[in-house]
Amino acid sequence: MFGQALVPLLLTLKVAGFATLLALLTGGLCAFLLARHSFWGRDILDAICTLPMVMPPTVLGYYLIVVIGRRGWVGSWLHDSLGINLMFTWQGAVLASAVVAFPLVFKSARAAFEGVDTQLENAARTLGSSELRVFARVTLPLAWRGILAGTMLAFARGMGEFGATLMVAGNIPGKTQTLSLAVYDAVQAGQDDLANFLVLVTSIVCVLILVASGKLFKPAY
């Protein structure tokens, strides 16, 4: 039973890890742009960035198929020119989890960036700091706790991802079958012991993450 749980657990950690990294980079960048720059269509962009949080994961999965599927806009190009296929691969699962986890990083990071007093950034500028240094020495050190807390939520969300992953990557044991998919299979097959064990592992990991991120959301200064 332990071995049966280990394979999907490791795959889940791998998929959630890469998905979180992807969500952190893109979500952090979008959050910074929207928090510090005012431009036409900012509210619409904010709504689009938040959309994956409220839409059914299956709908997101369908959108992804339209984009990266073999006949999709990006997918056909990837397949024809680079020979890359994302459908039914763990990399596809990473993309699906990243899209679902993105708003969690984005929302927390935007709030964290907006919580940094612009007067402090101005003070750094009058002290001769380049824009890059202002970001590295003032903005990021004051915002990182909020960003990290959001990143941990994204990881927890990525671990539990089911719908979008199933649409894009399928449910192939040992290849794309993550914990939540394995739980579904175990229940369907009547393997209650395995299901109990998988559920317990998932729950413990998620509780630990939530406790840690809860601590980080509290301001330090």
Partner: peptide, 20 residues
């Protein structure tokens, strides 16, 4: 000129010390 190149010191009303 960008503020970085003006060589003007600024003491803000609430002092704007870096809390970290």
């Amino acid at each position: 000129l960008r503020p970085q190149l003006r060589n003007v010191g600024f003491v803000f009303q609430d002092y704007a010390l870096f809390p970290h």
